[in-house]
Every structure is written in C-alpha cells, then in structure tokens.
C-alpha cells in the first residue's frame, strides 16, 4: 500500500518535472537566434565533443588544475543519481539486498562524502563563500542530506520516513534553486557546443587540445 510520504514524493516529482519543463519553455521562449554567417564547422561534432572528451580533465584546464574538486563533483553527482534510482526502486516496492545493495551503497557513500566535502569547501573557502548566495548552501545541503539518508536507508529501513521526507524537500527545491542545472546543464552545454562547433573551434584539431 502506498503511504502518504510516497504519494508526497511522487507529487514532488511531478512538481519538479513540471516546473523544470516550464523553466525550459521560459528560456526557449526568448527565441532562437537566426544565424546568417556560413558555418565553418559541424555543430553536431561540437556537441559530441562537448559532451564527451571535452568534459575530461585532459581537455579542460579547470578540471585538470582542480582534480580533487572535479572528482568530488563527479562522485557527488553519481551519488545523487544513485539516490534517485534508489528512491525509484523503493517507490515500486523493491528492497535491495546482496551485491545489488552494495552497488548502490558505494556511490551513495561516496556521494555523501563528496557532497559534504564540497559544502565544507564552500563554507570555509573565503573566496568561494563570497561568491555564494544562500541558495548555494541550501541546495548543497538538501542534495547531500538526500544522498546521506539514501545511504543510511540502505542500512536501516527505519529511516524510510526521514529519507522520503528529505526526498520530497529536495524535489520541491529542484526547480526553485540552482539544482535546476540538472536541466540547464544539458541545454547550456548544447548551446555552447553548437556555437563553437559551428565556428570550427570544437572539436579541436588535436587532442588533448593543448598539445
């Protein structure tokens, strides 16, 4: 039988998806730039590069020079994805055990640690703190708590209510705060990639591009 909290999670999911869709429509409502200059490169190749090699530390100096943070970011996002997968399984009544449970626990634990690390970094690095607004802390806190509680829930079913309640809060906040980048990351990277792909900058003639 579906509990009230499960219904709440589903409703929050609908809210998140619905508002993300609205945000997408709002952004695209600004229209599409009509381009007259003849293309020098292939935008599709630019997109393939930007979503592939172009995200790797080999291609990006910002990733290369900040590898711990970059790996923490990757770990954090993998943890969040694992958490979302886990909550989806719980909603359809599947309890994990054995190796499958371990397969979820590893990224969840890593995600929780990485998220905490990034939160601490934001709070205690003066420059990063100055760059931040309250949403940065709230979003990070909600997502980290979500991953941490997901991990805890894999250990104890007694945390079911806490985990589902936290999931609701997270989903409610997704389209309001900066977690909306779960959508805009893709649209932004697409637009940037088509721009540089069209101009022949992406993909670079050699890889890694600095060689």
């Amino acid at each position: 039988m579906i509990s009230g909290l499960q219904i709440g999670v589903l409703a929050s999911g609908v809210w998140a998806l619905g508002l993300l869709g609205a945000l997408h429509r709002r952004a695209q409502g600004y229209g599409r730039r009509e381009l007259f200059a003849r293309a020098a490169g292939d935008p599709r190749k630019g997109v393939a590069y930007a979503f592939g090699k172009g995200m790797s530390p080999a291609a990006k100096e910002s990733a290369r020079e900040h590898l711990p943070t970059w790996f923490a970011g990757v770990g954090y996002h993998l943890g969040i994805l694992a958490g979302l997968g886990y909550v989806a399984l719980l909603l359809v009544g599947i309890e994990l055990d054995g190796m499958l449970r371990l397969g979820f626990q590893a990224p969840l634990l890593a995600g929780a640690l990485c998220g905490t690390g990034l939160l601490v970094k934001r709070a205690f690095t003066p420059r990063l703190r100055a760059l931040s607004c309250p949403d940065d802390f709230l979003s990070n806190l909600l997502a980290t708590a979500f991953v941490a509680l997901a991990f805890a829930r894999t250990i104890s079913a007694r945390l079911d209510a806490a985990f589902l309640a936290e999931t609701m809060l997270l989903l409610l906040w997704v389209p309001v705060g900066k977690i909306r980048h779960c959508l805009f990351f893709f649209t932004t990277r697409y637009h940037m990639a088509t721009h540089f792909g069209r101009r022949g900058t992406f993909p670079p003639a050699s890889f890694p591009p600095r060689a």
């Binding site: 952004a27 409502g29 760059l131 931040s132 940065d136 909306r180 980048h181 805009f184 637009h191």
Partner: peptide
Amino acid sequence: GAEASYLETCVR
C-alpha cells in the same frame, strides 16, 4: 534561448 539558458545554469 541560449543566453537565457546560460543565465540559469551557473552553480558558482
């Protein structure tokens, strides 16, 4: 659409 998307994306 591109710029509006850019303005929604920064995670600082």
